[in-house]
Design a protein around this nucleic acid. Sequence first.
DNA 1: ACTTATGATTTCTG
DNA 2: CAGAAATCATAAGT
Length: 443
Amino acid sequence: MMEEQARIMQALSGVTLAGHSVQGGMGLPPPHGHEGTDGDGRKQDIGDILHQIMTITDQSLDEAQAKKHGLNCHRMKPALFSVLCEIKEKTGLSIRGAQEQDPPDPQLMRLDNMLLAEGVSGPEKGGGSAAAAAAAAAAGGGAENSIEHSDYRAKLTQIRQIYHTELEKYEQACNEFTTHVMNLLREQSRTRPISPKEIERMVGIIHRKFSSIQMQLKQSTCEAVMILRSRFLDARRKRRNFSKQATEILNEYFYSHLSNPYPSEEAKEELAKKCSITVSQVSDQAGSRRVVSNWFGNKRIRYKKNIGKFQEEANLYAAKTAVTATHAVAAAIHNSQANSPTTPNSGSSASFSLPNSGDMFMSMQSLNGASYQGAQVGANVQSQGDTIRHAISQTVGYNDGLRHPMYSPHSLNGNGGWHGAPTPSSVTSPNEGPGSVHSDTSN
DNA sequence: ACTTATGATTTCTG
DNA sequence: CAGAAATCATAAGT
């Protein structure tokens, strides 16, 4: 502080009359002479100077420059200067006191966090094209959502680039402006006292201003990202039919667990994996499981609503699984011939406690006119459990007295699950006919 | 253009 | 909260 003052003084003395450096004390008017004529003249003089100073801004540049020079050379200048120093010293305290620490703006923090989370402000994650290629390569077969994903990434990269450019621009402008102001202040410091604190404050103000501009940038960037995101989400929300393969897998599971088509979370996950329903997006896990849940929810209700319509499909998948099951069982039996085949477990996933093939068989019969060539399909139509037993009974001669493999009228309704399971018998003709009840009264 | 299929969402329910 | 049921909105088939 002291040396700064000294510096300013020095600079000043270089400009003004060399001899008149201010002597240590306050630069008040010299005490000699009473409040007489001399004093009045001086007062007048000072008032004049002040007036000039105050009006200097109203004048043209040249004029002002000239006036400034004049003032600089004025004999009273050193005195005034030190007075100003005094005043500043005092007011400076209050300013300093009033200067609150800028609180870390929560809004800005929020934006920063979001930008970081969105990968806009974070480190560059591989070039767009490279990333896209990687994504495409990774996905292999069903890469359609990866393509979308890379599209998204590309757009995000674009946003990021703009953001960074703008940010840099602002930064640069801020620096430029700061140096400019600093120079200005330095220049002015010859005329008026400027403490480093003041400069600091000035710089602080400038920075704050610029950061508020930056905040706007960040905000609009955030908005852009949000829009992009939502548009993407919408695009994803748009119905995309699953791949043939996926529906196949799901249907397989559904029909082979017809008596209890409620896959466990575990099973859902597995199914999701199998179907490569990697519907990216956050929570690949929960998300894909939800997708599977949706599918089963829809399937259950729609199946129940109009069994007839699903008959063909049911037969198809039942037959399919039956075949695989038979093979599996055959293999199993082959492997463990010694073991008593008390628990015929199929290789496929776990627990279908009470497979009641009755559903299918019966409802198939109840199909309106065009009954599906009964016997043959009927045999195949049995769901896994029965098929297995059947196969076993044929192969090994194992037969628990469960029920007739071919014809089991009322499924043991013991299986509570799948409650609404339309009792086949009552279904006689679940309103079939031409205008079958639209499941959805759409719109 | 209209209908059907189908994935998702919303609302309701136990 | 999971699942049923209703509903929405779009894809796909005609």
